[in-house]
Design a protein around this nucleic acid. Structure first.
Lengths: 233, 233
DNA sequence: AGCTTTCTTTGACCAAGATCAAAGCTTAGC
DNA sequence: GCTAAGCTTTGATCTTGGTCAAAGAAAGCT
């Protein structure tokens, strides 16, 4: 890879745990790669030959049931870490929701590098714990929340995580952002159908809480009411 | 703590990554503790002062919404690791579903011990990754599966994880086991209501797939059909 | 541009599961 | 043993969100 020191996620990705010279070593193992929207990086059941950092773009992890149903189990953003280090195969499919740029490592070389850099491993552990917390929050949504609550929750999360550079130390929420995906995928994230998603968007829009100038753009007009919707009914 | 070397989960818990002398050190930091069914070990939002290994019994992690709804986000069994090492507070409540025995460490002492034992940390990372996989499988269930599929999935999982000693190398399934909990909690695990859970139990029983000699006991009569139910419709 | 394809919205209807209510069973206490 | 307090099951009805179908809008192509 050319140069980690100028990488836009240098200080947010797991690489942040490394000193300059260690970073150089890791840098030799990885390479930058772009993937097009819709392209699948890892298939479920693959020996999962790679792990990666997301430099830019949005990717999804999904579980696909045999009858064609798909559940998106995670949406990953810039600086997130992708893949299954140490042993196991990837139990889910990893697909780009937008054009994306990632920094790829072969799993075996990453594994052995990690084994020798406890700080990196510690960072990875903390990230995985955070990811687990996020997954469990999502479970609560899928298990207990109504359609309206789910849409509101997703919009709040996106306006939080989709910040242009993502690294503002104070939490910066965007009031206008682009949905990284079409209605079908939103429904797969939320465990709803496309029609229900559409109806709920219309409902929240008519209530004056959001605006939808075009199919991809969301403008939040009343954040506190949106948050209230996300929390209860 | 008295003696790790005779601990029943010695070879399955994260302690398995330690040599005898290291184990002795860790052993000095921890202490055994019993908790009664229904007792809560950690509250959400707590500074989460402890982490623990489960020696025996079943515990649940739950998220409680303000209006009283509860979603159980994980069920933990013997040898599982509980708590949030490194920094963050516990975002969920940890409660015993059965009487249980656990091995507790103060978080600060565990954290510093872990920092000095990369093998332990590596083990913890692998466990967390596994736990993340489990959580995401659960998400698929909550997002996409029908009531019948959910019950069947839970029964298959319980018959797998509730093995008496849990350490058979070949996968041993139990055909007769005790539900660790009442119908209410089953419904909170599955994202259903208590009535739906009851009706589905009746349905599967009448189909001859399981028997329910009393409210807590389940006997699996036709595992392949149960598994088929768990996978699709 | 005009035409096709794909995505989104809206409507009418349906069904799975929730809610409300009551009756059976267990369990625990006296 | 008897009674009271919980669980659990069953039934009747209602609601939310799913399904089926068609009309509108964008985006792509020639």
């Amino acid at each position: 890879m050319s140069d980690c020191s100028t990488c836009v996620v240098r200080n947010r990705a797991i690489c942040a745990s490394l000193e300059t010279d260690e970073l150089q070593l890791l840098s030799n193992l990885g390479r930058k790669r772009t993937i097009k929207r819709g392209e699948t990086l890892l298939w479920e059941g693959d020996p999962a030959p790679v792990v990666a950092n997301i430099i830019d773009g949005v990717l999804k992890l999904s579980v696909n049931l045999q009858d064609g149903r798909e559940q998106i189990v995670s949406v990953m953003y810039a600086s997130d870490f992708i893949g299954r280090p140490f042993g196991k195969e990837s139990p889910y499919r990893v697909t780009a929701m937008t054009d994306a740029e990632i920094c790829v490592f072969s799993r075996s070389s990453f594994d052995s590098f990690a084994k020798e850099h406890p700080d990196l491993q510690n960072k990875l552990l903390q990230r995985t714990l955070d990811e687990l917390d996020r997954a469990r929050e999502w479970m609560t949504m899928l298990g207990k929340k109504s359609a309206t609550e789910r849409i509101a929750t997703l919009l709040v999360e996106l306006s939080d995580r989709l910040t242009v550079d993502g690294c503002s130390p104070t939490t910066l929420y965007l009031d206008r952002f682009e949905l990284p995906t079409d209605r079908q995928q939103i429904s797969d994230i939320l465990g709803l159908t496309i029609e229900t998603v559409s109806r709920q968007f219309t409902r929240i829009r008519k209530a004056g809480i959001i605006e939808l100038p075009d199919r991809r753009t969301v403008i939040i007009r009343d954040r506190s009411r949106l948050k209230a919707l996300a929390e209860m009914a």
